[in-house]
């Protein structure tokens, strides 16, 4: 019956991007998941050889085209102050620790912020951008992909204690809630059935270390919240809104389930 079936999955392979960035695709779980998982796996492990290979070289990774667009926007002035991101942050590389540590508590705003929220903050509060990027817009995904790409190889380490603890607990509650007419929780599929085929797809552990992710199905990069939305829709459920406090909390919680894996975005998935 239901259970973890890693029979068809080849574990133990390593991913090295461009022959230099070493990616941890399987490792010991964070302390709060000991007893749930013996090993946590990147979604990369569950994909076909072809899909895996696309991620190993930037020339083969279609997600990198969006990173390039993000880089162009990074260096382009926007808003009434005449600043570009580069005015204050010089190069994207100065933001290389961001992806591994977000979502993160923001003292000034008294809330947990995702990378997208932080970008919006800089646009609206520091650049005078009248029409900031939509949370799930192409421009936002490009910028988020740029910020992920410069953090590749860093170990995911989001803080779940202190002021973030309450948000994290909400995320945990959402993770284990059975949604929709099919009454399925994230855990039903990604904790209790990873490795198993659901129709033609091998279920992964539903990690977010590869986001924004290039999805072959969409022929574009997709955001974390877009993926959450799709997974709840597939339960015949009504998803929370993209950018909602519920999805921010869920993102923090799910990201923390990957503490110990590497930043991979933009990853390649089907």
């Amino acid at each position: 019956a239901a259970g973890v079936g890693l029979a068809d999955i080849r574990t133990g392979d390593s991913l090295v991007i461009n022959g230099e960035i070493e990616i941890v695709t399987e490792t010991a779980p964070p302390p709060f998941l000991e007893g749930v998982f013996s090993t946590i796996y990147s979604g990369w492990v569950f994909r076909t050889d072809e899909t895996r290979a696309m991620e190993a070289d930037d020339f083969d990774n279609p997600g990198m085209l969006y990173v390039e667009q993000g880089l162009e926007a990074f260096n382009t002035a926007m808003g009434t102050e005449g600043n570009s991101c580069a005015t204050c942050h010089e190069t994207p590389e100065t933001l290389s620790t961001v992806r591994a540590t977000y979502p993160q508590w923001d003292e000034e705003h008294g809330t947990v912020q995702t990378v997208e929220m932080q970008i919006l903050e800089c646009q609206t509060e520091r650049m005078g951008v009248a029409e900031p990027y939509g949370y799930d817009s192409q421009e936002m995904r490009n910028m988020a992909a740029l910020i992920a790409s410069v953090g590749r190889g860093q170990t995911i380490n989001v803080a779940i204690d202190g002021p973030a603890a309450e948000t994290w607990a909400l995320g945990e509650e959402i993770y284990y809630t059975a949604y929709g007419q099919m009454e399925l929780s994230c855990a039903h599929c990604h904790e209790r059935n990873y490795g198993n085929l659901i129709r033609a797809d091998h279920l992964s552990q539903g990690q977010v270390n590869g986001f924004p992710t290039y999805r072959l199905k969409n022929a574009n990069i997709v955001s974390v919240h877009n993926r959450f939305r799709g997974c709840i829709r597939d339960t015949r459920g009504e998803p929370y809104a993209i950018g909602s406090p519920e999805f921010v909390a869920l993102e923090l919680y799910v990201a923390s389930r990957g503490n110990g894996l590497s930043v991979e975005g933009p990853a390649v998935r089907n």
Partner: peptide, 30 residues
């Protein structure tokens, strides 16, 4: 994990099929 195919109430955020919209008042069993 197996869904209940002949049930119309007691769900958390039921949708209108796979549309992402909320379920109609007269939600039909699957």
């Amino acid at each position: 994990i197996m869904p209940a195919f002949y049930k119309v109430s007691g769900f958390v955020r039921p949708g209108d099929g796979f549309t992402t919209r909320p379920a109609p008042a007269d939600l039909q069993p699957m």
